[in-house]
């Protein structure tokens, strides 16, 4: 009996490590990223200096932040479309309402977070307590936010204060990209969140709501908090986008809708919830941004890039679904 058991256990461990490796979105995507980066370096030439690195990090961060937030919601089994609206709204607010100087910049950051939090809380309330479908309710909040963005600024324009545009995008102390540092902070914060009861509850709710509630997990509160946290991430993404583009546009967030879900899918988070994590999505976002840059530097015209994005979107969701199901051990 004991021999039988131990053999079974060791089988399981071997099996598990293979599955974990295959199913670990972050790892697979990171390898892909390195390969693509090599291609990009070959096509572009000068990519290793501080300035090109800094530019790449700056271009990547907004999408990475949005994808991190969208992942938290998706882990609970929901879809959050409000990302596009929140980013647009934050962008136009930063571009029109915030003056120059450090205090104003701080206020701008706070405003971005507050907007994201408010929208996230509305989403969370509608989904968790209102029992609405996540796609439908976040579609509604997305529309409201895009409308408000147009009310604030009805055409591309405005001006993001130099303080924000410079300090959030230039290398810190001239040595390390600020965007990279922010990404690291977000990763660390996620590791912290994951180690709380709330973090465990996110995964629990996404895998099986009934079992989670039988295990004593507060399902509704967890969902509500997940949407709120997602909203904060979108707010931050909007803030960083404003800093990078230094201008406002009421449709600044629109491209993020599709790209965010592509990043999440590439990063190996299951669209059914419960498997994956924001770190994979952030690498997935980096991969998408790098892909655009690589295509651009390879001289592919922009309409192909758009077509590529659509195709990659579909592929990513398909592949992501397969890898997530491998990770879940459901690959029958």
């Amino acid at each position: 009996m004991s021999a039988f058991v131990s053999r079974k256990v060791s089988d399981q461990t071997a099996d598990r490590s293979i599955r974990l490796w295959l199913g670990n979105g972050a790892l697979v995507v990171s390898i892909l990223y390195v390969l693509l980066f090599a291609f990009y370096a070959a096509a572009q030439g000068d990519v290793f200096g501080l300035q090109p690195m800094n530019d790449l990090a700056n271009d990547t961060l907004p999408l990475a932040l949005a994808a991190a937030g969208g992942t938290v919601v998706m882990l609970t089994g929901g879809f959050d479309l409000s990302v596009a609206g929140v980013i647009s709204l934050v962008n136009v607010c930063i571009a029109t309402q915030i003056g120059d100087g450090p205090l104003n910049a701080l206020w701008g950051l706070l405003l971005a977070i507050l907007i994201g939090l408010a929208v996230g809380m509305v989403n969370g309330a509608l989904v968790a307590f209102g029992k609405l479908q996540s796609i439908a309710s976040t579609l509604a909040t997305m529309i409201v936010c895009s409308g408000l963005a147009i009310v604030v600024l009805d055409a591309p324009g405005g001006n993001v204060s130099d303080f924000i545009a410079d300090n959030a995008t230039d290398p810190i102390l001239g040595v390390f990209p600020a965007a990279g540092a922010i990404a690291l902070v977000i990763v660390l914060l996620w590791l912290v969140v994951r180690s709380t009861a709330f973090g465990v509850a996110i995964y629990a709710v996404g895998a099986d709501e009934t079992a989670a509630s039988l295990a004593g997990v507060p399902v509704l509160r967890t969902k509500f908090l997940a949407y709120s946290l997602g909203g904060i991430c979108y707010g931050l993404a909007g803030f960083m986008l404003s800093a990078v583009t230094a201008t406002g546009s009421p449709s600044a967030g629109t491209p993020f809708l599709l790209l965010m879900f592509a990043a999440i899918a590439i990063g190996g988070t299951s669209f059914a919830g419960g498997y994956g994590g924001p770190i994979g999505s952030m690498v997935g976002a980096a991969l998408l941004v790098l892909l655009q840059k690589a295509l651009f530097s390879a001289g592919v015209s922009s309409f192909y890039t758009v077509i590529f994005q659509g195709a990659i979107m579909i592929l990513a969701v398909l592949v992501g679904g397969i890898s997530a199901s491998i990770a879940a051990g459901r690959s029958r």
Binding site: A140, T141, I143, V144, S146, G147
Partner: peptide, 14 residues
């Protein structure tokens, strides 16, 4: 503004 129209669409859907 045109934006209010969009806002109203969103609120009406909600």
């Amino acid at each position: 503004a045109e934006g209010w129209r969009t806002v109203i669409y969103g609120l009406v859907i909600m």
